[in-house]
Write a protein that binds this DNA or RNA. Structure first.
Lengths: 110, 110
DNA sequence: ATTGTTTATCGCAAATGAACGATATATAAA
DNA sequence: TTTATATATCGTTCATTTGCGATAAACAAT
């Protein structure tokens, strides 16, 4: 992703898929999302108790998920309530679903 | 992913999801997969003609997709026939599908 | 045997990512 | 006002990723 990205002309969906996939590309972020998605309501704090990593590291991962749009945080200092960002979550489901649905190679023997 | 990965105890699915997501985390790899998935049969070579990147770079991306199990290559030197790896492709669809399906937060206002 | 074609690998430079400890920030509680 | 709590940010270190050109490898064609 160094020099040439613009001159390839990716579609919006390609960019969106790639950046959401990047957000999912670390197991601890998968874990965090599962924890948030499994909550019946929004979620405050206990992540640092559930995941054996430095608080600053967890915070960084949350930031990455925020920037990817997959979660949202309601700031309420000193606490923050984190949730799945439902709209983008649904969009992600759709994009990944469509992506994996398009597989037309049925006939060849390879 | 430096020091602590083992002592968190990720599940197999968490690891699998994260590594497939990592393979999808670059737009050119999304593009390549779309090209392969759109072919009615396996695909030889023309990737270098379709994607304005150095041949070595494309080869590296193909290697990444191979190692993630998302494609397969039938070596037939000097050519190689690349395909979607259907079994793992379906597994990926299932894993991502289940992942995005599990979102129970319906009630709270956040 | 030589040449051409196609793909992979190597070696490098630059960028990004991941983890941590230390510190800052912002509020509630005392 | 001071202290405690929860979270974010900074700065550092090390590892990984990305891209390229150059080169190697494997075969087909001549």
């Amino acid at each position: 992703m160094q020099r040439t990205l613009s001159d390839i002309g990716y579609t919006t969906d390609e960019i969106a898929l790639a950046s959401m996939a990047k957000a999912l590309s670390h197991p601890v972020r998968i874990r965090i999302l599962q924890l948030l998605a499994g909550e019946t309501c929004c979620f405050t704090g206990e992540l640092t108790g559930l995941i054996p990593m430095a608080q600053s590291t967890i915070s960084q991962h949350l930031k990455a998920l925020l920037e990817a749009g997959l979660i949202q945080g309601e700031i309420n200092p000193p606490k923050v309530k984190y949730c799945i960002h439902r709209e983008n979550w649904n969009k992600a489901r759709t994009l990944f679903g469509e992506f994996f649905a398009g597989e037309t190679c049925g006939g060849c023997l390879c």
